[in-house]
């Protein structure tokens, strides 16, 4: 019985694989005389109204790829957490407290750094930068606080929630395009005027989600690496 079910499932998978592959015209020029570069540049300017064509390629034309990259980051963070969970701490990572100058400086710089990170990922479709870069900047802000304050706590629950919600936003935006009768991650929102903050359809929303996700993941990684001791106790 089990073997029959497996065979039927395999047949279904094989049928759809053959069906999909038979529709692809291998070896033909599917860009009607243009090359891929011109196609991307033309489409990102005229069909998506995104002034930063790198962003439109990363998030829209190759958005599926980016979803995979975000998943790789998530897996790396999880794996690091699980490896460090089992490792025994050889003495303390922090030898002495940071001085008052460092602490007050970190306190002063923390908010501007978060603001810069948010600026970078919100303007990802207008200027160089984007979700990955902005998220990393946010994580450096948290690293500064972790280095300055010995007892600075980041809630793992909140980090997991932010990460999961951001990932869910990304995937559900892609699925919404599929539900509305387009392809996965295809744009379905109004595209606005070029060089506006509210332009580019789903691209800014996806990049904001990526920014939150990367920031939360890297903060979690840094927090785990600095606070191995805490895991040993629990």
């Amino acid at each position: 019985m089990k073997k029959v079910i497996v065979l039927i499932l395999l047949a279904v998978v094989a049928y759809y694989l053959v069906d999909v592959f038979s529709q692809i015209k291998f070896g033909e020029n599917r860009f009607q005389g243009e090359n891929v570069r011109d196609f991307y540049l033309d489409k990102s300017k005229n069909d998506l109204h995104v002034s930063n064509s790198v962003t439109s390629i990363v998030v829209n034309f190759r958005g599926f790829d980016t979803l995979g990259e975000v998943t790789v980051l998530f897996l790396a963070a999880t794996a690091l957490g699980s490896v460090l969970y089992r490792r025994k701490a050889h003495g303390e990572a922090v030898l002495f407290n940071a001085s008052t100058i460092v602490r007050s400086g970190a306190h002063l710089l923390f908010a501007p750094i978060l603001l810069l990170g948010a600026y970078v990922f919100i303007h990802g479709h207008l200027s160089p930068g984007g979700g990955f870069q902005g998220g990393t900047i946010i994580a450096t802000g948290f690293l500064l606080m972790l280095l300055a304050y010995h007892d600075y706590k980041v809630s793992h629950g909140v980090l997991t929630w932010v990460e999961s919600l951001a990932g869910l936003t990304f995937a559900s935006l892609g699925l919404t395009g599929l539900i509305l009768g387009k392809t996965f991650l295809e744009n379905f929102l109004p595209i606005g005027t070029i060089n506006d903050l509210f332009s580019g359809g789903i691209i800014p929303i996806i990049y904001i989600a990526v920014g939150f996700k990367v920031g939360a993941e890297l903060t979690g990684v840094l927090y785990t690496m600095l606070n191995e001791k805490e895991y040993k106790k629990s």
Binding site: A98, I101, V102, G105, A106, L109
Partner: peptide, 9 residues
Amino acid sequence: LSNPISSHA
């Protein structure tokens, strides 16, 4: 703000 603080640290 950042350069003197980092060198101090």
